[in-house]
Amino acid sequence: MKELSLNILDIAQNSVKANASLIGISIDETDDVLSFKITDNGKGMTADFLSRVTDPFTTTRTTRKVGLGLPFLKMEAEMTGGSFSIKSKSETEYKEHGTEVFASFNKKSIDYIPLGDIIGTLCALVQGAENTDFIFNHKMPHGEVFLSTKEMRELLGDVPLGSPEVISWVREYLSEAYSAACAVD
């Protein structure tokens, strides 16, 4: 992937497919390290599947025998000297189930891939998952950006979250929030 935000989009799409009703995306950034955690309350994975999940030849795809999303992310994090972890509880074994993916990156590494268009990622997620809520926050050295689709839904009433008008609002809202959060630098 050319941007870490594309990995975030890819991993969060797995959460959507796991029938999560709530997905948390939090990015924590200092001058040296960027880490993110994606948590969901979806159906989770069994311990057996979890142990094979970063193997490219493990996939839920039905169209091909290769799945590259998680292996890519793990490699990209480890190449920078960062770390990767995944935890999951399957709905078949636990009442409180879901998955947590964590990755950290050393920003000073030559192999560090920039975060890129995180606003584009959030717009794509909100646009595509009518039955899923997202809680996003991004902590930066001088500010923070936050978005909750739960809060948005309360105000929108019957209007679908994925309406183009609403997505335009999300794009502008986040652009302004990022300008404000980065302005102190």
Partner: peptide
């Protein structure tokens, strides 16, 4: 500045 209140206007 964009605010959440604008969503009510969209509605």
């Amino acid at each position: 500045m964009k605010s959440l209140a604008e969503l009510a206007a969209i509605r």
